[in-house]
Design a protein around this nucleic acid. Structure first.
Length: 601
RNA sequence: GCCCCCGUAGCUCAAUGGAUAGAGCACCAGCCUUCUAAGCUGUAGGUUACAGGUUCGAGCCCUGUCGGGGGCGCCA
């Protein structure tokens, strides 16, 4: 975590290579496989291989030569401030830190930085993360949740890593699905309205499923059924036309029901502790997006085939002169002049770049739309936006059910709200036996924090490109590699610190440290680099993995090393500071994962 | 036909081209008179789908094969 020692060593190695006329390959530093003490290591395989290729080979195999070089460097090293010893092993140069001095430095830094420990330096770039794009007139299901937790954690990561970060939501509030709900509501349920934010949202989903069934062609349909269905279909089309024409009645119907969905969405975002900076709505970019089509035609990027009854298209592969199909041809305006998903995304990108001055634009959208985004980014590039190079589609796999894909049409969905309610119920059941002393209010708060923690972690600890088969028992597991496991480490750290009323003593780190103590400090010191990596690679999972490793190391330490019972006062003070530093780091990691770090559970 | 993703322990998943491929779950054996047992310790479990290639070094990069999933001009 402190690069100054590493830099000193690197300078020495460079001086040695210059003095001995050995062309040095770039040095890559990694941590040494843990062996009770810690340090950093670099290898000489590349340098040895380069030598062999340049014909300066001594005839020895590369690994042997690398070991020889490492040994030479070791001899030249001499004593370095902060380094206890250096060794040459299997072609690696292992540099070990002075345990006490390094430990003290790490722990003091964490305690001085507090909630800011791990925060990266300002990057001077503005990032917009677009996520939480559910369609309105449906209810929020567990798939939407994966999207939202991924986006939120990514935003927390980029923000903490030093990027100015803008959170954007983009609900889909128009289209045939929306109109279908309006039609059925108006025809069968007008004037009705269940009480309760979630009840209303879920009711719209039920109406949608019913309407879809009514409009679907059945096998062995009787003539009566057929004419009924066709009449419904005509009504739905007429409603769509009226909506498009701005009919006041339809627009009002749409506005009111849309608000029901948005209210539910806001409530869920609030539950998830997500605060959006910007709300884009499809309905608001629909009209403006038409003008960009004209611009693209005028600049000969798009081809207008409307004169022959066709749509407006961009022949991307052809324009780029690609022999093989890759980006294919994209339709950016229907032949009837109405817009498409892509039309709106192009218009929205322009708004992001020009009005929000976004340097980097991240889209958290499931993997099925990867071609769409490849096309969109390529068209933005052809259009002349340099930011197109820094547009990134964070694609992720679907959340499916054991019985198959979720389907709003068939009403086969697992609602987020239901899962949260179940989670809280399960935590309460465990809690009544584990923590009988808690007050009722505290019990409710903690149950929500633990339940949501379990759910969030189950989504975050899987790589984006994997599908998740949603299993309630797995998602709400409290044992092993889970959110509650990490939260429990935080609680245990807190329970020790409570014994000294949070008063953290000073310590000189003179005592000989146990391997559990050293390993815990090693894990803590990794945190800033993990923040950097997770943010730069847009991978929340990296932070999720780290949080578990840290908690795991803490649990082992907790079990093996007594703190308050330590007789030696200096050792006890060191351990108290170490526990405080661990608690802080666990809290910071959990915060980035959008998981609460409770003091009791 | 073309493009993208995936294939690692019985199951679910990790592993910036680098040292002996790691966790959890499940199974088995231990650990609460001690800071919270939602925990800890240990045993067992592998031809990294297959075949070539590049490299000093490949689970990772390249080519091909097989298997699974997704996508491909007027859905989003």
């Amino acid at each position: 975590m402190f690069n100054d020692i590493q830099q000193t060593i690197e300078d020495k190695i460079k001086a040695w290579s210059a003095a001995n006329d050995i062309p040095l390959a770039p040095l890559k530093w990694t941590s040494i496989p843990f062996s009770g003490e810690w340090g950093v290591s670099t290898s000489f395989f590349q340098t040895a291989a380069d030598e062999a290729r340049a014909g300066k080979s001594t005839g020895k195999p590369v690994p042997q030569r690398a070991q020889e070089l490492a040994e030479q460097v070791k001899v030249q090293m001499g004593s370095v401030e902060g380094i206890s010893h250096v060794e040459a092993v299997k072609g690696y140069l292992n540099v070990y830190f002075e345990t006490g001095a390094y430990a003290r430095r790490v722990v003091d830094t964490v305690l001085a930085s507090g909630a800011d420990f791990g925060r990266g330096p300002a990057k001077g770039e503005r990032v917009m993360v677009e996520y939480a794009q559910p369609n309105t007139h449906h209810s929020f299901h567990i798939g939407h949740y994966r999207n939202t937790i991924l986006g939120e954690v990514l935003a927390r990561l980029t923000e903490f890593a030093g990027y100015a970060t803008v959170r954007a939501s983009y609900p889909g509030d128009l289209g045939l699905g929306v109109i279908t709900v309006l039609w059925a509501y108006d025809k069968f349920y007008k004037g009705q309205e269940p009480a309760g934010v979630h009840e209303r949202g879920q009711w719209l989903l039920k109406i949608y499923a019913e309407a879809t069934a009514l409009l679907k062609e059945k096998e062995n349909e009787t003539p009566e059924e057929k004419s009924q269905r066709e009449q419904y279909e005509a009504e739905r089309r007429e409603l769509y036309r009226k909506w498009d024409a701005g009919d006041p009645y339809v627009r009002e119907l749409w506005r009111v029901t849309r608000e029901w969905s948005l209210e539910e969405l806001r409530d869920i975002l609030n539950t998830m502790d997500v605060k959006m900076d910007v709300w884009f709505y499809e309905s608001e970019v629909d009209e403006p997006s038409k003008t960009i089509v004209d611009e693209l035609i005028a600049r000969d990027i798009a081809t207008d085939e409307r004169s022959t009854g066709g749509p407006v298209i961009v022949k991307i592969d052809e324009k780029l002169g690609l022999a093989k199909e890759k980006y294919r041809t994209a339709v950016i305006l229907r032949s009837d002049g109405t817009t498409l998903y892509l039309t709106k995304d192009l218009a929205l990108a322009k708004v992001k770049f020009e009005q929000y001055h976004v340097d980097r634009s991240i889209y958290v959208v499931d993997f099925r739309q990867s071609l769409h985004f490849q096309q969109a980014f390529k068209i933005l590039e052809m259009w002349g936006f340099p930011q197109a190079a820094k547009c990134h589609h964070l694609s992720y796999g679907y959340v499916t059910l054991p019985e198959g894909a979720m389907s709003a049409r068939r009403g086969q969905v697992v609602l987020f709200k239901d899962v949260v309610d179940e989670a809280i119920k399960r935590v309460l059941a465990v809690e009544s036996e584990k923590a009988p002393d808690m007050t009722e209010a505290q019990r409710q708060t903690v149950a929500k924090e633990i339940g949501l923690g379990a759910l969030a972690y189950s989504m975050l600890a899987v790589d984006n490109n994997k599908d998740i088969v949603f299993d309630m028992n797995e998602a709400l597991s409290f044992d092993g590699r889970t959110g509650p496991y990490i939260q429990n480490a935080h609680v245990r750290a807190n329970s020790i610190l409570k014994k000294v009323n949070g008063q953290i003593p000073n310590a000189t780190f003179q005592h000989s440290m146990d391997k559990h103590e050293v390993e815990l400090i090693e894990q803590i010191s990794r945190f800033p680099a993990v923040v950097e990596q997770a943010a730069n690679e847009y991978r929340p999972m990296v932070m999720a993995m780290y949080a578990y490793d840290l908690a795991n190391t803490f649990h082992s330490f907790y079990h093996a090393v007594p703190v308050m019972q330590t007789e030696n006062e200096e050792a006890r003070n060191v351990r108290l500071r170490l526990v405080a530093a661990a608690k802080q780091t666990i809290a910071n990691a959990l915060r980035l994962l959008d998981i609460h770090a409770p003091d009791v559970m």
